[in-house]
């Protein structure tokens, strides 16, 4: 009756709303938590202390150097054809502008191909990327590479339409990458609305002039930590089932959704299993990654440091694409493993979370392990609105719903426990 007990305690029993309440306490205390900040380190200390207080085992952190990028003050102002403040957010790793800013004529393109076609007219200008949103995975290349592509043509800065399918005039930040051997030019995102407006202005033949000011700076890498807590396995403690999410966030909003919800879903799953006195045969390990937003920095360091342990990772789970109403799991692994998961999820019919889809694309930090053939899963949930809030000031505690978190925790904790407790290892190549 293990699964029914977990479901009952979370939906109507004394563990009801604990994931939401613990997340809210954390978010209200720390707000957003960018890598390299003292606030993130304080948040990590808080989680270590809470883990000990709530009885988790082998609680510790593992150090890793992470990028330290600081936004500073920033603004973008449309000067011509009329005056308007443009809501903007500098992109992570961007250089700043000179102190007086950059005032330049702007040119709008809808794609990298259009940029190539007008390459002769780009020199000395601010390039605005007004790309159409297709999907996050397909469109995010404009955020990542806009600055490098435009710099190759002599542009002085880039402004990128935010990578979101829906906008209430919200800019959405995120990491960007400079290519080798190109001039590093300042780059920021603007809102979809402003991007569309600037395109219309250009199409009417109007001359666009923008003043961009950014104080962004990159400092030497700083020490941060992955946060680890366990329930030690009762019979095969060397074998490990990982549940995870990332504790860092962007420096806007509160990072309640990305990835406070995922981190607390994983961490509180262990807390509630411990509270219920459920100790599986294998070790259950919660890992709260650091510096995911800067390029999976904490995960890469962890995988490297635990290379010798890789064969003992039985199953790896991560939630980093929303904790809305859960539907099941997204899975990567061989077909037999999917069958095992389907059998486990059939235990959760009462809460309608029986679907298994492939692949496990909502778990960026576990991709290193998945690519080595270790089976894993991410949370399948009603995340249609996830990218409305993603990396924006709208990512606050209001995105999270106590009932959805109860259901998601019931699913997450049940799967983690059963996988860690059944006789057979999860099938793998």
């Amino acid at each position: 009756t293990v699964v029914n007990r977990i479901i009952h305690s979370l939906l109507v029993g004394d563990l009801q709303n604990t994931t939401y309440r613990r997340l809210a306490e954390f978010i209200d205390k720390f707000g957003n938590r960018i890598a390299g900040s003292e606030n993130l380190e304080n948040a990590i200390d808080y989680m270590l202390n809470k883990s000990v207080e709530l009885g988790l085992e082998n609680v510790h952190s593992e150090e890793v150097y992470v990028p330290h990028w600081v936004r500073g003050n920033e603004s973008a102002v449309l000067i011509q054809p009329r005056y308007q403040n443009l809501n903007m957010l500098g992109l992570g790793s961007s250089v700043g502008t000179p102190v007086d800013g950059i005032t330049a004529e702007a040119v709008v393109v809808d794609s990298f191909e259009e940029l190539e076609n007008i390459a002769a007219h780009v020199y000395g200008k601010i390039v605005i990327f007004n790309e159409r949103y297709i999907s996050y995975g397909e469109t995010v290349k404009y955020r990542q590479f806009a600055a490098s592509k435009a710099a190759e043509q002599g542009a002085v800065a880039t402004l990128v339409r935010s990578i979101t399918p829906f906008s209430l005039n919200t800019p959405h930040t995120g990491w960007q990458d400079y290519s080798d051997n190109v001039t590093k030019i300042p780059t920021a995102c603007i809102t979809a609305e402003d991007s569309h407006m600037l395109r219309r202005m250009q199409d009417r033949g109007e001359r666009i002039i923008i003043k961009l000011k950014m104080e962004a700076q990159t400092f030497s890498p700083k020490l941060s930590r992955n946060t680890i807590a366990e329930i030690k396995g009762g019979e095969k403690p060397e074998k490990v089932v990982v549940v995870s999410g990332h504790l860092d966030s962007w420096d806007v909003g509160e990072g309640a959704m990305d990835d406070g919800g995922g981190a607390f879903l994983s961490w509180n799953s262990l807390v509630i299993l411990k509270y219920l006195g459920l100790r599986p045969k294998r070790t259950l390990r919660a890992i709260l990654w650091t510096a995911e937003e800067e390029g999976l920095v904490g995960a890469q360091a962890y995988v490297k440091a635990h290379k010798n342990e890789t064969q003992n990772f039985n199953f790896v789970m991560e939630s980093d694409e929303g904790t809305f109403t859960p539907l099941g799991l997204k899975y990567t692994g061989i077909p037999d493993g999917k069958c095992v998961l389907e059998a486990i999820l059939s235990l959760l019919k009462d809460i309608n979370t029986t679907t298994v889809e492939e692949p496990a694309d909502g778990g960026p930090d576990i991709t290193f392990w998945l690519s080595e053939g270790i089976p894993g899963a991410s949370l399948l949930n009603r995340a249609e609105s996830y990218f409305w809030y993603h990396h924006s000031a709208a990512d606050t505690m209001d995105v999270e719903d106590p009932e959805a978190l109860n259901l998601a925790t019931a699913l997450w904790a049940s799967v983690a426990y059963v996988v860690a407790d059944i006789t057979a290892d999860m099938p793998r190549k």
Partner: peptide, 24 residues
């Protein structure tokens, strides 16, 4: 309860299916 159409497509051994069902 797990012997629905979805699970019947699978190749996992019946004893493992029974073991998983016991967690309900």
């Amino acid at each position: 309860t797990i012997f629905n159409n979805e699970v019947n497509q699978c190749t996992i051994p019946p004893e493992l299916q029974k073991e998983i069902a016991s967690y309900k």
